[in-house]
């Protein structure tokens, strides 16, 4: 059974169809990449999955559950975490606090218990710290533990955002352009993190990416989009040699 499934989802902004009846499914343990030129609707698909946008048509299923109309703050609790294209970290909080916010959907005590710092809240808090420290160790972020995000270099922030997503203990991880803004080495490092996440943590990944070397390095399957429509889907090699995809990137006429 597939872990995630989109059935003919579409979204319209005014007269523009940003996503036009896109269907795909993602198997457990897979790294699924979405590629396409700028404005193809890749990030829009992410925003549909994390329910920031409402789809005009179609259905979304996660883990056998219909999430087409689930409120956005419930998505993390179901086991879907995401990162953002331009980094949306909590800039005036420390790295550790950022990771702890990632634990929010696992908070097991009520507000009053927390305000009184009852023993249950203390126990819960220790559990969260432990998990956050695990993630810090996994990603090797120890030296930045108490640094404010605003004082961190861009490359590190990218990793922190990944770590924050891991703190939610997701089954499905949505990575929006994990390599954007990174240099070649950092991109390679990101590729290794993604492979580790898949192999060691067993987390399924959907990734929007422009860097083809990263896509080839980690992806099991690739979907190419243009103008909100699916152009091609399959192994990275097949998709990249698909004439439709080449035309979408390079332009030119259809060879009939």
């Amino acid at each position: 059974m597939s872990l995630f499934k989109a059935e003919g989802i579409s979204v319209r902004f005014g007269g523009i169809r940003a996503v036009d009846s896109v269907s795909f499914d993602v198997q457990p343990g897979e790294v699924f990449s979405i590629i396409g030129p700028n404005g193809a609707g890749k990030t829009t698909i992410f925003n549909l999955i994390s329910r920031i946008y409402n789809s005009t048509e179609g259905k979304l299923f996660f883990d056998g559950q219909d999430i087409t109309r689930t409120p956005p703050h419930r998505i993390a609790g179901l086991g879907i975490a995401r990162t953002f294209q331009n980094i949306e970290l909590f800039a005036n909080a420390s790295l550790l606090q950022n990771l702890l916010i990632g634990r929010h959907c696992h908070a097991a005590t009520g507000v009053l218990a927390q305000m009184g710092f009852l023993p249950s809240a203390r126990r819960d808090e220790l559990r969260h710290r432990e998990k956050a420290e695990d993630v810090i160790a996994f990603l090797g972020l120890e030296r930045y533990r108490d640094t404010l995000i605003a004082n961190l270099p861009y490359g590190v922030r990218k990793v922190v955002e990944l770590g924050r997503a891991l703190c939610t203990e997701p089954k499905l991880l949505l990575l929006d352009e994990p390599s954007s803004g990174l240099n070649v080495e950092e991109t390679e490092g990101m590729g290794f993190w993604i492979e580790d996440i898949k192999k060691d943590l067993g987390i399924t990944v959907i990734m929007v990416e422009h860097d083809m070397s990263l896509v080839n390095q980690v992806s099991d399957r690739v979907m190419a989009l243009n103008y909100g429509k699916v152009l091609s889907m399959g192994s990275p090699r097949d998709v990249q040699s698909d004439p439709e995809v080449i035309r979408a990137y390079l332009g030119g006429e259809v060879e009939a």
Partner: peptide, 11 residues
């Protein structure tokens, strides 16, 4: 600091 990502962290 960021409403949009707070929301996707389950807040």
């Amino acid at each position: 600091d960021s409403e949009i990502s707070a929301q996707s962290m389950g807040i």
